[in-house]
Design a protein around this nucleic acid. Structure first.
Lengths: 405, 405
DNA sequence: TTGTTTTATTCATAGATCGAAGAAATGACC
DNA sequence: GGTCATTTCTTCGATCTATGAATAAAACAA
């Protein structure tokens, strides 16, 4: 699945996308409501929905809206995605874990699962075999019928347009044509995306405030990533990748990072880093870079909350790095919104004092005041949600172009 | 002059702007050439140019293109800006210097000048009186007839849309309504812009490669600023300002910066910083934050090139900071082009070894390779060129809307 | 049955762009 | 000098998108 989103869209395609996006976010709507929601005339909505009904993408709901029982006038006929359109699978690949999600064409969750599986040591072909196998097994287990596309999110610099992983610390890959490799194995279109971008997309889809202006979503979890959106659309750098902000070096000789460098933001804040450093405090065996379980991370956080001074130091240092990172974002991009998200927010109470001190100490107060900072508690499955939404959008376009041809 | 550029433009206005921009960049062109240049049909060009000729913005050249003497067929009639449209003044305000430039409506330079004048100590009203006086005097000296607008660039966070300087280290201003204040005094529309953004705009207007994709222009001079462009249009943060990348803190307890903080990028790289630190080496009197003359800076560079070890250390540290700064830009924004520009490039030979070492040591090689780094030697007068171009663009829009009303 | 109200569609219009046909202005050639 | 070829520019009709206004549709209310 070449990400056609990134190529210029015709006015019709843009309008169509806006309509379908709104329906996925808001649920079934009548034509009038769609018009009001999008700021478009009823005539245009009628025209657009006529094509979409004709193509079988939308269907009119049989049952009337129960809430409208008391109002008189012609009842609304709400429109929604046809059940017969099939489903889409979203995947996230971490250092040693694969998360999977099955959704229908409306984006509603049907099943989700995760599998523990180290991926770093695998060669390119083996990696793609394992992923294809895992996805196929998931589809079979869940009885997924008619899977139309697969979306996959992973850490690293991902060329979403051409479907190539240019660089990834968790896959150990260089210029890996993952989309075509998986696509060939599965016989379906595959869209790939940077994981922080995927989560940022999911979060902004859920909050309309974050879709206007500029929103920087800093995801803290397995790694640290940045998803940056301008007017609700993901920012793309050279080769249409996202950002590798997590691998900005903040301290010249800091702890080891998965990328091979030292002192990266990620090397202080990511789960693997906190877990490793907590192990070192207890003089445990050689640290690994594996993604620790949520249970293990919860134990560390609980121990810190209980007052363990060494662990408190760890979180204090991490909070300081987080403050420095957000400070750089503010002074560089001056976003309207900064969202701190991902599993790492579980320890936000421990991070916050040093986070705010570091942030305030290095930003110009007038500029600091312009950015609203949101903390959104979100787990890894928001990643699969984000990438699945993107795959659905691409599918919408494919269907339109299929009809046109 | 409320910067209407930042409000959504109608399709007609967008087409009109693209046409006039192309004419200013390329010089007089025939309609066919414009069509080829912009990728637009001859019919559309005819339509647009008819309005522009009608409005008196463009005129057809009387003299035929001498190069086309040998070719047969109907000769081209080249179009260009009417001489009668008046002129525009561009201004840059530094810490203790004002640069001025007068251009005609085609953007051609007519006169330029600079004035030494400390501005930091002035109050808001006094500052605007001084600026208005300087601009009026410049207009009189140069015999500028019919000045239609003024563009002013300065350091700091500038709300270009509403014409307010939200924060500026050189003006000591907070939320200063500079555009309206100057506009009232001069009786003309005034556009204000961050200085690094203005220079970035001028540089990208001169090089078409830099107008596609994402271009980050790091200006090193009186201060350090970032102008970031996406597809040739300036990136705007919250409140429609640019970036204050120069005040990103790189070293936790580095040298004093004009912004009041310590260890900012600017505090190592700006002319005032290098000059101050060079003075300190020689145990000269208390350092000031004044902008040193080009002569003084040239002397320091010459002395370093001659092998002065203390000065070489200074430039080595500055180069390292430059490398760190560019590294952050690459990993955060992954631009297609990075331009290092401004008077600071005069010492690029001294900066380069430590610059490249620092850059390579902290960027992921695969990502580092995606960004082309350009060094553009450019003096302060490219700043006034940039802001004058922007004021001209606004004027184009004003004229169109005047006719429409 | 006849209105009233709200929803949805149809239709004519406006704006923008384009391809193709035609008009204009010149040199080439006999 | 007259005709033709060639290139530039304009005009005209067609297409596409979006809209307001008029119309049709589907209910409830009296």
């Amino acid at each position: 699945m070449t990400a056609m989103t990134l190529l210029p869209l015709s006015p019709r395609e843009t309008a169509r996308r806006r309509l379908l996006d709104a329906l996925r976010r808001e649920g079934p709507m009548a034509r009038v409501e769609i018009g009001q929601h999008l700021g478009v005339s009823p005539a245009s909505v009628s025209d657009l929905t006529a094509s979409l009904l004709d193509e079988g993408i939308l269907v009119a709901e049989e049952t009337a809206d129960p809430a409208s029982g008391l109002i008189r006038g012609r009842p609304k006929t709400r429109l929604y995605f046809a059940e017969t359109l099939g489903s889409v699978i979203g995947v996230w690949t971490g250092f040693n874990r694969i998360e999977l999600r099955l959704v229908d064409s409306a984006g509603r969750n049907r099943a989700s699962r995760h599998v523990e599986r180290p991926l770093r040591s695998l060669g390119a072909e083996e990696l793609m075999d394992v992923l294809a196998g895992t996805i196929t097994a998931f589809a079979e287990e869940t009885g997924a019928r008619d899977v139309k596309a697969v979306g996959l999110a992973c850490q690293g610099y991902v060329d979403t347009k051409d479907g190539i992983v240019a660089w990834s610390p968790v896959l150990g890959a260089r210029d890996l044509p993952l989309a075509s490799g998986l696509g060939d194995r599965l016989g379906k279109p595959v869209l790939i995306e940077n994981d922080a971008s995927a989560m940022a997309f999911a979060i902004t889809q859920r909050n309309s405030d974050l879709r206007s202006g500029r929103t920087a979503c800093l995801m803290v979890g397995d790694g640290v990533g940045l998803g940056f959106l301008i007017q609700g659309e993901l920012y793309r750098g050279a080769r249409f990748g996202g950002s590798e902000f997590g691998h900005v070096r903040l301290r010249r000789s800091g702890p080891q990072c998965r990328c091979g460098g030292r002192g990266c933001i990620e090397a202080y804040l990511a789960d693997y880093a906190l877990h490793r450093d907590a192990q070192l405090i207890d003089h445990r065996p050689a640290p690994t870079l594996l993604l620790p379980s949520e249970g293990a991370m919860g134990a560390i956080v609980a121990q810190a909350r209980a007052g363990d001074p060494a662990l408190l130091n760890l979180f204090q240092a991490a909070g300081e790095v987080l403050g420095d990172a957000v400070g750089i974002l503010i002074q560089t991009l001056e976003p309207d919104h900064i969202v701190i998200c991902g599993p790492g927010t579980r320890a936000m109470d421990l991070l916050r004092p040093s986070f705010e001190a570091a942030l305030d100490s290095q930003t110009i107060p007038e500029l600091r005041a312009l950015a609203a900072i949101h903390v959104v508690e979100s787990s890894m499955d928001l990643l699969t949600e984000g990438v699945v939404m993107q795959a659905l959008r691409e599918l919408d376009l494919d269907l339109a172009r299929l009809k046109a041809a």
